[in-house]
Structure formats: C-alpha cells, structure tokens
Design a protein around this nucleic acid. Structure first.
Lengths: 210, 210, 210, 210
DNA sequence: AATGAATGAGCGTTCATTCAT
DNA sequence: TATGAATGAACGCTCATTCAT
C-alpha cells in the first residue's frame, strides 16, 4: 500500500522494510531452506517435523512443501552434491588402485559421505514411505557402482564373488547408524572388516580349489 | 469379569482367599500381558501402540503401565527368556566348538534372536528414550559375552584381537534392520562376513609377523 | 490431586472441584457430546470441525474420536431415535390411511425429520467419504419402507408404478437443502408435489388404457 | 515468454504496438482462462482449487484473481453463454408449445444445463459465500423466466397457480445434486414429476370447482 | 498487467500418558 | 489393584489469498 518512496538516496539501505520480500527470489530462499534443513536434520534427525524446518528457515510450511513436496526431495536436495561426489569417486579410485583396494576405499568414501549428514543413515533404514524415494535414489545411484567394483575385485581374485551388492551397500549405511557412544572410527572399521571378510573368503576358496 | 472362585479349601478364611485370588489374578494378567505383548510385537513390531497390547491382553492400558512403566520394561520382560537362552548359548557353543567357530556360531544365534522379534533391531537403534533401558540391558548382557568369545578366538589365533566388542555387537543388530527387500539370509551372511574379516586380519597379521 | 474432601455437608454441591471427573461416566459425557454436536451442527453445519464439537462439549478431540470414530457415527447417534420414529411412522400411517395418503403423509414425516436436524440434508448429499456410512444407513432404513409404501399405493391404483424409490427418497432430502430464503413450508409443498405427480401419472395411465 | 512481434505495419509507432499487443495478450489470457476453467470445472467440479485452473491455463493464480476476484465471477463468466442459451430457450419453447408443455420442456432444458457442469448444482446450494453471487445471478436470470412460464401455464389451466417459482427453480437444481449411484435420467424424471404434480393439482381444482 | 512464491490458518487424526473411579 | 475414559500436543498436509517483483 505505501510503497512509492522510490528512494533516490542510496546511502540508506533499501532493504529496510519487509526485507523478506526484497530478496524474495526462490533461489535464495531455497538455499536458506536447505541450510535450515541441514541444521534441523542435525539437531532433531531427518524425521523432524516439517514445521520445525520451516520455522528454522523463517518460512511457512507451505513454502517447504512447494519446494519439496516429499520429505525425500528435501533430503536429496540437501545431499545431492555429495551423492555425485561419492559416485564419481569410484571412477577415480578404480583408476588409481588395484580392484580390491578400490573397492575398500570406495566403501570408506561412501561411509564418510553417510556419516557427514547426521541422520542420513537412519533415513535410509526408515520404513516410513516418506523416505522411499530417498532409498530408491540411493539404490539406483550406488548399487551399479558397487556392483561394478565388486566384479572387478572378484575377477581379480581379490575378493569372493558371491555377495549381494544391495546387501553390502545397506550394510555400510547400517553400520553408520548413530547409537549411544557412537564412534565413527568404529563404523569405518567395521565396514573395512566386511571387505576383509570378502578377501578371506576369496583366500579360502583358492586354498580349497587347489 | 465375573469369575467364580474355584475354592476347594474352605478352611482358610475368606479374606485370605480374596488376597490369594487377587494375586493369582494379577499373575495371570501379567502372563496374559506378556503373551499378548509377544503376539503384538510379532505382528506389529515392538513399537506397537500400548493400547493394542492392552486390548490383545484384555486389560486396561493402566494395567500395562502399572506393570511396565517404560516400554523397555515390557520388551525386556517379553524377551527375557530369549535373552537368557541366547546368553547361555555362548557357554554351550564354547564347550562344543573351537573358539573361532564358537564366536561365529554365537553371532548367528544372536542374529536369529534379534530377527525373531520384529522391530527389535530398530528399537535397539532408536534414539527414543523409551528404548534406552532396552539398549542398556542388551549391552550389559551381551557385551561381556561377546568380549569373552572374542578373547578366546583371538587367543587361539583364529581372529584378530583389536576389535570393539560394543561395535561388533551393534553391527550385528544393525545388519538386522528391516529395509526394502530385506532378506534374513543376507543379514546372516553379512554377520558371518564380519567374522571372516576378523579371520582375515588374523591371517594377515600372522603372515606379516613371520 | 486434591480430592479427599468427601464433603458430608450435602447442602454444598459435591461436584465442585473438577466436576468434569465427578460425573465422568461415559454415558453422561456421551449425552453432553450429542447435545453439543447437535448445537454445533445447527450452528456450523454437519461438516463442522471435530475440534469445534469437542470444544463445545468441553472435552478433548480424542474423546470425540473414542465415542464416534467416524463422523457418520456421531451424526447417526444424534439422530438415531428420530430415524426409528420416522421408520415406525410408516406402519402407523399405513394402518390409518389409504395407501396413497399414507405414502404422502410418510413423505411429509420424512421431510419433517430431515428438516428437524439442521445440516442433515447437506450431509446426505455430501460426496465426502466421511458421510458414506450415514447415507448407507439412511438407504437401508428408508428405501425398503418407501418401496413398500409405493407398491401399496401403486397397487391401489392411486399412484403410478414406475418410479425409483431411491430417487424419490433422495429427492425428498434434496428438497430440504437450505438455501437463501429457505422456507420449510415450500420444501414440504414440493415433496407433496412429487406425490401429486405420481397421482397424475396414474390418472393419465388409467385414462389412456380405457 | 519471449514472443516475436509479427509486425508488418512499420508505419505505426512502436509504443502503440506494445499497447495493442498487451491488450491482445490480456484478451487471450482471458479466453484461455475461460477455456481452462471450463475444462477444470468439467473434470474436477466448480470447486476445484484456483491453482489448478491457473495451471491449466498456463497463467499465475494472481491473474485469475485479477480477472475474477470471486469464484462466482469465474463460474459466471464460464457459463454465461449457456445461461443465456437456457434463458432464450424459454422464448423458443413458448412459441412452439402449449404453455404447460413449454414449462415442462424448459425445466428439462434447465436441468440439462445444470447437469452439464459438474458441481454446479452443489455450488448453487452451497452456503459458502464464494458462491453467493452465483446464486443471486441464477435467481435474477431464471426466476422471472420461470415465473412467466408458470403464469402462462396456470392461466391456460394446465397447471395450478399457487407455487413458489423460487422454490421450484431451486428444486430443479436440488434434484441434480450428485449422490451415490446418481442417474441423470432419474433427476430429469423427478423434475418432470414436479410438473406433473402441478398438472394434477390443476385437475383436482377444476374437478372440485365444478 | 502478470506472476507465482509465500503465507499460515485450519483440518483430520494418532497416541502416550494421566488419573478419577 | 485394575480400569479405560479423557486429554491434548503434535503431525502431515491443503489451499485461499496476498503482494513484492
């Protein structure tokens, strides 16, 4: 109603009144939302009420739903870049290391990624349908990658062949679940232990087939 | 509601009867409650509404709360026997098998136990305070046992020594968490893979120390 | 907490403190709920928020849901007696009047019943699934009755035979829908007009078959 | 968004072009809006979310509100032509048929019109203020017409005189309300039954006045 | 003039927990 | 001691409406 001022005096900050609207571009708001979501996920878990995320971001719940109709959408938006980085790491590691080592290192990369987002592991193991898309996205992204790494290591005789890549991927995130006295180092070690198990089985198979 | 007193012993004063009767009633309630809780836990998981358990048992919710103020109390009461069985299995297995094999077999026993109660794995990894006592009870029961099995296997040179028993125990239950396309056989295999990892490390250590 | 008074002075009202609890029997509460529901239905329509009904009754929403899981249940409870009265009227009217007249009079009875509960007509024509049970209950109660009345009148040659009893019943409640400047007398007259239409068709049929 | 100006007449000053262009744009928007609204009304009923209509038309919700501040305005704009057609039908029918028949046929025309727009009948009987203007418009359009038809038929002795034209008009739309197992044919028949009722009353009156 | 992002009140519903009886 | 009625906070979600751009 009262917005005709057309302030020509540029020394006064123009974003004085209703500063929420002066920088209303969705992108900025979107960023704030992602920041807030990360904060809230960290604080209250990925199953935090949408209201809490909205409040933290200083927006209405409708805004959150507008940008991210499903909870999974919000999570995926928060971690999208990290997912890509993690996926690309497989290529790099394969190029630089022996197949078994590449496999082991990528699993550590994956674990570090999961651990870097508090509550992500829990979301991946939730039975809530709201997380279905998240799980599916993870599966479609990472299972082929792990499958490929497993084949390479197996073909090189460094690990045993008969292992479910789906199972192994889920195992890795399972081991990242926060519990009392949770220690990330232990989670990492347990994942490497799984790979060592594959190596052991390969060794045993070779022994017995002699 | 209107239960006839099948009293054949008329010599005892009636007040006593009532007392005894009430005690029997309470006991029966308690038993029915545990039975019902097991049924409901099996059907709907350990996070089923208290009301559902009370209804199944034919008692009021207040009765459930009276006997088991915390959900953990109820769960522990229901699975107490199985916990004991699982704990005792360690002794039996140790007596019958080589230390490494005993360790591996007990881990499978533990996994089977966890898997037999839907939602138990999730409860053990829940951050809900209602499950705190449950987690603590599991830790105090099973960590010493696993510690002992690990030491024995390690001393026998069958597995490597440096492993967190707490971490390994949690790993086992983590791998039992239900996910899409969950397959108990895969869970069991992954747990055995962890033990194989310990064997591999022991083998590697022996090789390098030669 | 503070409830030991055990007032022996009966001149003072004993339901002083926490009077909600002193007469906590479900029946009474149930009555209050039904009263409140009727009031709210009258004020805000049968599609009023459950919260509003609960507030009017001075109870929590959970209490409403406990007694009446579906909105239809609440409505049916409010009008149950009137439904029965209306159904029984058919018998009385049939005994005292000629078939055509009985039909006409019962339709008026039905209309008066619908009109006596503000918003009821709207509920019967809502597409909201919450009202499905209500509609079904009405159909199963009244369609057989109307069918019977129609047959009798038709057999007596007072009305024409080919008419949908379902359609006619719905027509009666449709005509009771509140609109601007709604006049109950007009609603009643229109329903009687429908019956007169049946009479006209019967007359025409008789003429043409001569 | 970036539309090329197909300007072949370069003699006219460009500013004018822009003006004209904008007007054309606005007009097209308006037309698209009405088309889309009709589509959405037909698909989802006249109570469809404004957003759905805007989306279908490819415009923002603000544009819809600008052109049609009230939902009634939009509905009336969409069905304006049909309303006129329906009104004009009265003239045609009156010219071609006997008064009673013209009345009956126009009622059928009116019913067909109402039935052609899903949800229209419900809107006409809604207590939502958003539909108030719609109801008023219907009343001011059609009541005089029906009044006239009724008078003519009544004067010709084909129907009885004492009937509320407002009531009868509302009755017709009431009978078009969708219900479970709704059958348009039944709705039409019931409306014709009302007219037959008027005929019956006229006949009875004539008999008794002899 | 057109846009559509933002708002936030409001709804139905669940369920852990309390406490008068 | 047992009961279960009552509570009410909390959640996911929708959508009419506003208004800065």
């Amino acid at each position: 109603m009262e917005r005709k001022e057309q302030n020509t005096d540029n020394t006064v900050e123009p974003h004085d009144h209703k500063d929420r609207y002066l920088r209303v571009d969705a992108k900025r708001n979107n960023c704030a939302l992602l920041q807030s979501a990360l904060t809230v996920f960290t604080t209250s878990g990925v199953d935090a009420p949408i209201r809490e995320i909205a409040k933290q971001a200083g927006v209405g719940v409708g805004t959150v739903y507008r940008h991210f109709p499903q909870r999974s959408d919000l999570i995926l938006a928060v971690i999208g870049q990290e997912m890509d980085n993690c996926a690309e790491a497989a290529t790099t590691l394969t190029a630089k290391h022996a197949p078994g080592e590449a496999l082991a290192l990528w699993m550590q990369t994956y674990v570090d990624f999961i651990l870097s987002i508090p509550g992500l592991a829990a979301a991946l193991h939730s039975s809530d349908p709201a997380y279905e898309a998240l799980t599916e996205s993870f599966d479609s992204h990472f299972i082929p990658i792990l499958e490929s790494l497993l084949h390479a290591a197996s073909n090189a005789g460094e690990t045993c062949p008969n292992i479910s890549s789906t199972g192994l991927l889920n195992a890795a995130s399972s081991l990242c679940l926060k519990i009392t006295n949770f220690d990330p180092a232990v989670a990492r070690d347990l994942v490497s232990l799984l790979i060592d198990g594959l190596r052991y089985r390969s060794y045993i198979n070779q022994q017995s087939s002699k």
